[in-house]
Design a protein around this nucleic acid. Sequence first.
DNA 1: TCTTGTTGTACGAGCGTTCGTTCGGCCAAG
DNA 2: CTTGGCCGAACGAACGCTCGTACAACAAGA
Lengths: 210, 210
Amino acid sequence: MIAARRKPSAELSREVILDAAAVRLAREGSCGMSMRDLAGTLGCALSSVYNHFPSKDVLLQELQERAFETLTASARRAMEGASGTSGRLYLFITNHVRYVVDHRDVMSVLVHEAGRLGPEGRARVRARKEAYFGIAHALVAELCSAGPDRASQVAVERLTYHLFGMLNWLWGWYVPDRHGEVALVAGDIYALLLARAGPLPPAHPTPEAP
Amino acid sequence: MIAARRKPSAELSREVILDAAAVRLAREGSCGMSMRDLAGTLGCALSSVYNHFPSKDVLLQELQERAFETLTASARRAMEGASGTSGRLYLFITNHVRYVVDHRDVMSVLVHEAGRLGPEGRARVRARKEAYFGIAHALVAELCSAGPDRASQVAVERLTYHLFGMLNWLWGWYVPDRHGEVALVAGDIYALLLARAGPLPPAHPTPEAP
DNA sequence: TCTTGTTGTACGAGCGTTCGTTCGGCCAAG
DNA sequence: CTTGGCCGAACGAACGCTCGTACAACAAGA
């Protein structure tokens, strides 16, 4: 009698919950977001969230897993557009930059809450992350035509980490309207990497003597 | 009679508390570290911590303020060793890399908990951060001999952000024993930047057509 | 030298609040 | 009538923080 308590339009689902969780997590951190706040954002009861996820940890873990899978899949799809190594790298970078712009909240969670999981969840997420990292690593290695010696291997690894440093830092500052469109930023990072990536490693550069 | 409850060797001070807090904060995040845990780590009572800091927020804020002041001061001191722009940039980078190695915990806090403050504390920390950012920004601008036009300005800003992306990402992966000593990594980043930084901006590089 | 008052730091106990999670019942769709 | 999704209510635990107190160190007056 007292009107319908059920909201027929709600359509509560795992996807909807994950999307809302990403927003709150990005804004307040994994420990700052309470399950009550999340339920409030969703306009449903606290226990309804627990009908779809058995715990907060699982929710956080699934969010990260999906993000890395989406990222990996979209990267592979994007790279089909080019055959050469440098072209594929450019498309990889562009895809990542676009992902940061389109899913800033998720990206923030990926950067901040990586280690806030149990050992089992962390392992699952890490596997996805390494798969994604591996794509870029292989491209950089090809681009540097790195030898099998340890020095070259480590140099390539460092270069790949630097690439991800630039890419992952974007969430903290990049605003397309202020800093230029996606293609511009992607071009920046691509150019930085390409200018450096020749036969590696050149002698360690010591600038003009102190 | 019941023996001395006071620990004469404890010497609880703000410095000691901040150091311990950095370790816990890096491991568990600002919301994961409880004041009780911190007191436990210090081997003192919870209320004793509150004798030195009025609140958790103030503690977190002071930790970040001190970190940026230390970072800025050590950068200025390090850069006195060179006169040219590129030499100063190299020393700036080296100083930052060394700081990450020596104060990994603090660095982790700086990256993760930047936005977890009240509006007033955030403003104070931001001011310090911008002072530090400004040093690198000026160096990059000089190095690029950037013109006053908006396109150049934005390009320099992007380049500076990319520099900090590489530098700040270090905390997550860099292990000197595995990836080479500080001078090697600093040389990497320096070379990446220098190879790119000429008269800016060169035409946007579109790699071989898709 | 002894006493006395003040100050700074440490302490245990406990305040009110919020956390993640659970549970039993209700209601509409099948 | 069954069932799956949703709800309000409540659990114990942990949270940030405060309170009144206790003890050492020091300075001044006697």
